[in-house]
């Protein structure tokens, strides 16, 4: 049986467009709002990434750190994250949802326990920022056995040999980090150059769904729309921060932003 992630990409290919992938942090700015946000933006986004917050994130920039901080201040625990997923999946059973975060939370929760919770709440995939290949081999296999996608990451520093190995060990989606940066950095490489690298990776195995993330905003997204998928995260976290500052409703604000992002890649 095909995974919901694979189906989402198939759908987009039929419509000849890139998949829109959003990233928000569970519990930002409240538990309820983050569920409401998922429900709203899932009408425009093809795949949803949901961050489980960690207080010592070594690869995230200021925006996502801010969102994680807000969520943790609200007392966000892993069990709340799974509850949000479960509630979301009740009304959106077909929409793929990926959890993203750092390994220590999984380690403390216990790998088996964590995967069990993923399964029962309906998580479709995992991105673990600090568990690279080949250290992630065992865990990625355990995910596969449970029918959960383990999403491998590639970066501009990844050698070609290494890329081949990682792609061979990948599941339905691979994430290409556009540039040397933490999340939310300003795009310091031209979209043309990013797509050049993207195409090189695609040629290794054209059948794999490859998405681009890091530094993608409403300004840059259309120039990268030939990719299989595009991830927008920090812009959304920033939108929440700004709407809180202006005393606006982050849910409706985010709905609009994601709607506009989608328009730019159709």
């Amino acid at each position: 049986m095909k995974s919901k992630i694979a189906l989402a990409f198939e759908n987009c290919k039929k419509e000849k467009r890139a998949a829109l992938i959003t990233y928000t942090v569970a519990g930002d700015n409240t538990k309820n709002n983050s569920l409401k946000i998922l429900n709203k933006i899932s009408k425009h986004a093809d795949i949803l990434e949901l961050g489980f917050p960690h207080n010592t994130p070594i690869a995230d920039g200021g925006q996502i750190q801010g969102s994680s901080h807000r969520a943790l201040k609200n007392g966000m625990k892993l069990k709340d994250v799974f509850q949000i997923v479960k509630k979301f999946k009740k009304t959106n059973p077909l929409k793929p949802l990926i959890l993203m975060g750092y390994y220590n939370l999984i380690y403390q929760n216990g790998e088996s326990n964590f995967l069990k919770n993923c399964k029962s709440s309906g998580v479709d995939g995992l991105i673990i920022v600090d568990l690279p290949y080949p250290e992630n081999k065992d865990f990625a296999n355990r995910c596969k056995k449970k029918g959960i996608n383990f999403i491998q990451l590639l970066s501009p520093t990844t050698s070609r040999e290494r890329m081949k190995n990682i792609i061979k060990n990948s599941h339905d989606m691979i994430y290409y980090i556009s540039m040397l940066s933490t999340t939310g950095g300003k795009l310091k490489v031209s979209p043309k150059k990013i797509l050049e690298n993207y195409n090189k990776i695609k040629r290794i195995n054209p059948s794999k769904n490859l998405v681009i993330g890091f530094g993608i905003t409403d300004k840059t997204i259309s120039s990268l729309k030939s990719a299989n998928g595009l991830v927008v995260g920090s812009l959304l976290c920033k939108t929440i921060t700004n709407s809180l500052k202006m005393r606006q409703n982050p849910v409706t604000k985010l709905d609009k932003v994601v709607y506009n992002l989608k328009k730019k890649i159709i």
């Binding site: 070594i58 920022v129 990451l153 501009p156 520093t157 980090i177 040397l180």
Partner: peptide, 8 residues
């Protein structure tokens, strides 16, 4: 336990 970018 590092991000992919730091592997190389």
């Amino acid at each position: 336990f590092i991000p992919e970018t730091l592997k190389k």
